[in-house]
């Protein structure tokens, strides 16, 4: 699907402006600028070690408090620079959710995994049950777990746990969802389910997804960024990037061996 680039330009949910990441004297990311269209899926690909996961963690300020690591530049969320003064990190993270490579269910029941974040978020007690059910429905887990909500989340399979983590992130209704290779630790069937789930989020959540599966990126995303050695070698509509004649980009996208 080719994005129309004229008057119907989509709104930008998030804009990175000259973002760099340094650890001591070492530069991990150099001068990254990109904007994420609202409600769309943007994928970030690149060779291992290019800094994709590091870039993701900049958006929700997960580098805060890590010694010797510094973030330069600005991340604009609406007209607020997330790295400006007097920005409350907890508020940032309640608008920008994250799902990780390995499923990370808390050592609690399935129900509590979603109910607890909701409670902390300030959801009224009477609404929590409904919101938990809604979140589980969104990720397609409700039918599978509705009869055992109070069993430990660790009794679920890997794919189910990851969907639970996505449900947990979505339950607090973030506007942006960061995903760090969410399906890579799973079997192919689970991977496809997660991909379909992510695609179903179009229009409701802005997704920035890191992946090293190029076919997945091409299939799911509408915008694509190619990160090589800490620099953004290409960024734009997915099909346009795949058609790019730039040496570095073309080499990675077309002559790259996937595992």
């Amino acid at each position: 699907m080719v994005e129309v680039q004229t008057e119907n330009r989509p709104m930008t949910a998030l804009r990175l402006e000259h973002v760099s990441l340094t650890a001591g004297k070492h530069t991990i990311l150099d001068d990254i600028s990109m904007d994420l269209p609202d409600g769309r899926i943007t994928a970030l690909v690149g060779p291992s070690g290019s800094g994709k996961s590091s870039l993701l963690r900049i958006v929700n300020r997960l580098w805060d408090g890590v010694p010797r690591v510094r973030v330069h530049g600005s991340v604009w969320y609406g007209d607020t620079d997330l790295y400006g003064d007097r920005v409350d990190v907890s508020v940032v993270r309640s608008h920008i959710g994250m799902v990780f490579q390995r499923p990370t269910p808390f050592p609690k029941s399935i129900f509590q995994n979603i109910a607890l974040p909701l409670k902390v978020h300030g959801t009224a007690r009477s609404e929590i049950s409904d919101r938990v059910e809604a979140a589980l429905q969104t990720v397609g887990l409700w039918d599978e777990v509705s009869n055992r909500l109070h069993q430990p989340a660790l009794t679920l399979s890997g794919g189910q746990q990851q969907r639970l983590c996505i449900a947990r992130a979505l339950a607090v209704e973030p506007t942006v969802l960061l995903m760090d290779e969410p399906a890579s630790a799973l079997d192919p069937k689970s991977r496809r389910r997660i991909d379909e789930l992510i695609m179903s989020l179009k229009g409701t959540v802005t997704v920035l997804m890191v992946t090293h599966h190029l076919d997945e990126a091409r299939h799911i995303s509408e915008r694509l960024g190619v990160l090589v050695n800490g620099r953004l070698a290409a960024f734009g509509e997915t099909e346009a990037v795949f058609a790019s004649e730039n040496d570095v980009v073309a080499h990675y996208l077309h002559h790259h061996d996937e595992d």
Partner: peptide, 18 residues
């Protein structure tokens, strides 16, 4: 404890203490 487990809590907007 895997680092991502702790990051999951932080990513929900919880403080370090929480």
């Amino acid at each position: 404890i895997p680092r991502e487990m702790i990051e999951s809590g932080l990513a929900l907007g919880w403080t370090e203490g929480e």
